[in-house]
Amino acid sequence: MIQRILLGVAFYFLWIGLSGHFSPFLVATSLISVVGVVLLLTHLGLVARQFQPFSLVVPLVIYWGWLLVEIVKSNIDVARCVLGLGRPATPSMAWIETSQKSELCRTLYGNSITLTPGTFTVLAEGDRFLVHALHREGIAALQDGEMDRRCLALDEKFRGRIA
């Protein structure tokens, strides 16, 4: 139930943010449409913690801040390689172990690897990712496990609420 109310509130803010209308009639009808959408999602069985992880919103935004810095750093690296200013490319490929238990946080980890330029996930089989990197150091940095640790902390927070 709390999940549905939170989802409805999120939808309502999204509606207000996208429409920008505040007349009483439209605000009332939007309320009806939000309730309708939440009921429809309940009927489809799409209201669940792994689809809307509200408990992770604050840690996730903090994680995004860290990820943004990593994205900027690796963007500079790849741009220098493309323009021929830095080290030449040493493409490499390796299987990376992931330690997250939940599908959600494993997806987060895989997407974070792909989102930082210079490394991307080619295959995701079970709890391992096949990662391609533009530089050999990219694989080494992933095996070092800073990003894995941060995703694991989010994963533990996510699963802690179930138990």
Binding site: I71, A79, T114, L115
Partner: peptide, 16 residues
Amino acid sequence: PDFYTRAHAGGVTDTA
């Protein structure tokens, strides 16, 4: 040079 390294260049456009 090849498909996979070119995908990294696409990543720069996608993010930065």
